[in-house]
Write a protein that binds this DNA or RNA. Structure first.
Length: 476
RNA sequence: UGAGGCGUAGCGCAGCUUGGUAGCGCGUUUGGUUAGGGACCAAAAGGUCGUGGGUUCAAGUCCCGUCGCCUCAACCA
């Protein structure tokens, strides 16, 4: 097992130093590299491929709901931000501003968008005149910039990629429905495509998006038990439509103010995949979004017929729509096994003279590291079934990991003990800000999401009557 | 933004206390032998010591600034 030890030394131990493990893995697998400007990252081809797969899956879902893609400008006049008081207050500290261009100071400073409610709201006010113009559902894939103080690749960067959907509706009910429908789409996507189980629900007032009436979130548990906000859907009510004058003439001839929503997920999802499924060997990608779904490692490649057989297999899998790579490099098979495992490829095929002779291939699955022999003649069906099984297996494993770490507490010591042990802690809450702040102060945990449909007798912090049950956790 | 640690060859590190010829392991290149869990032999290449300034005859080493990474805390859709 000496060689095993040597391998493990390449990345930090996942349980002993998770943050270092994360940094080691994202750099060594070439998902990402650091940019020259503080907090910026270069998303390398292996990482960008994940993002493209995410885009593909999400676009299909958006289009099904009647959402159209568009693109709005990067630069937003500063004055737009001041139109919604809470929004500007919330974002002002982290907005980067362009003050000079063309060798001159600009008459009006331009914000580099931290989010686009303001400019999209402005444009919507032009486009929405009649109830017939509603609902208006627009999404954009773009970069945004938020000058964060502490950064980490994918999880929190100064500039990141995301999608932001913005919709306008005639009625409050319809806008609320849209908010919840998008949250449901996010959840379905997270579970079925990323194999990440999520808790969904409303955020507290403290954690609400600046300018929203209500913020809904999906929260995922990472390997170390901390929570990651993986996506949000905001019901904006008439806050932005009032500020940006999104009005329409209803069918009874009266001028009405629209109701809007916004919702987004970002490249942070890639961080979520890494921290949910990763293990001591490195990345583990869910097949649906894996850049490479299957790698073929030839054994004794110089023996006659081996390379040809590998290439034929590759073509066959490729034609069936499987993202497959043949590793023809000069490294030893053992080296390749470890390398592709670190890179998280869900299925590996070992193909050597013995297999070819017997009409078989040896398949190893990344999640359990199990190896199974399969007939070469039904390779496509075999690999597809295996990919499907890995996808399901990862979700089950992640769900089990999370469910085992959801505990209840009825006092603040219990909350502290719970989060110290890497759990999500459900506790009764009276609803006041003081109690919420006290939990943060004394345990380092924040309220993540309301536990819908659950109730408690008393507030775990002050002992008064509980109005809600909250999920508390330390978070990224 | 506070407190601490780190930055020397592609990667991991030693050298710094006490200033005086730039080191080790892995990897890389070339040739050969190999190949089912990080193969072996031989030869070779590779460094403005993160960066800017200062002290000094002389700085990887001492001093100041700055950038980046890690940990804890604070801040934060």
């Amino acid at each position: 097992m000496a060689k095993e030890t040597q391998f493990v030394e390449q990345i930090a131990n996942i349980d002993e130093n998770f943050p270092q493990w994360y940094t080691d893995v994202v750099l060594k697998t070439k998902l990402v590299d650091y940019g020259p400007v503080k907090g910026t990252m270069v998303i390398r081809p292996y990482g960008y491929a994940v993002w493209e797969n995410i885009q593909k899956e999400m676009n299909a879902r958006f289009h099904k709901r009647g959402v159209e893609n568009a693109y709005f400008p990067l630069l937003i006049p500063m004055s737009y931000f001041t139109k919604e008081a809470e929004h500007v207050e919330g974002f002002a500290p982290e907005v980067a501003v362009v003050t000079h261009a063309g060798g001159e100071e600009l008459a009006e400073p331009l914000a580099i968008r931290p989010t686009s409610e303001t400019i999209i709201g402005t444009m919507m006010s032009k486009w929405v005149q009649s109830y017939r113009d509603l609902p208006l559902k627009i999404n954009q894939w773009c970069n945004v910039m938020r000058w964060e103080k502490t950064t980490r690749p994918f999880l929190r960067t100064s500039e990141f990629l995301w999608q932001e959907g913005h919709t306008a509706h005639a009625s409050e009910e319809e806008a609320k429905d849209e908010t919840m429908a998008m949250l449901e789409i996010y959840k379905e996507f997270a579970e079925n495509c990323l194999a990440i189980p999520v808790l969904t629900g409303r955020k507290t007032e403290k954690e609400r998006f600046a300018g929203a009436v209500a913020t809904y979130t999906m929260e995922a548990m990472m390997h170390d038990g901390k929570s990651l906000q993986a996506g949000t859907s905001h019901y904006l009510g008439q806050n932005f439509s009032t500020a940006f004058d999104i009005k329409y003439l209803g069918n009874e001839g009266v001028l009405q103010t629209a109701y809007t929503t916004s919702w987004g997920v970002s490249t942070r999802l890639i961080g979520a995949i890494i921290m949910t499924h990763g293990d001591e060997r490195g990345l583990v990608f869910p097949p649906v979004v894996a850049p490479i779904q299957c790698v073929i490692v030839p054994i004794a490649a110089r023996k006659p017929g081996v390379v040809e057989a590998c290439e034929a297999l590759k073509t066959q899998l490729e034609n069936a729509g499987i993202r497959v790579t043949l590793d023809n490099s000069d490294n030893s098979p053992g080296w390749k096994f470890n390398e592709w495992e670190m890179k998280g490829v869900p299925v590996r095929i070992e193909l050597g003279p013995r297999d070819i002779e017997a009409g078989k291939m040896l398949c190893a699955r990344r999640d359990t590291l199990e190896k199974v022999e399969m007939p070469l003649e039904s390779a496509v069906d075999g690999v597809k079934a295996l990919l499907d099984s890995v996808q399901k297996g990862l979700l089950e494993k992640a769900r089990k990991h999370r469910d085992e770490r959801i505990v209840y507490a009825d006092d603040i010591a219990g909350i502290l003990a719970g989060v110290e042990a890497g759990n999500f802690v459900k506790a009764g809450w009276c609803g006041c800000r003081e109690c919420e702040d006290k939990v943060k102060e004394e345990t380092g945990a924040t309220s993540r999401v309301f536990a819908e449909g659950e109730s408690a007798e008393t507030c775990a912090i002050c002992g008064k009557k509980a109005e809600h049950v909250i999920v508390f956790a330390r978070a990224y």
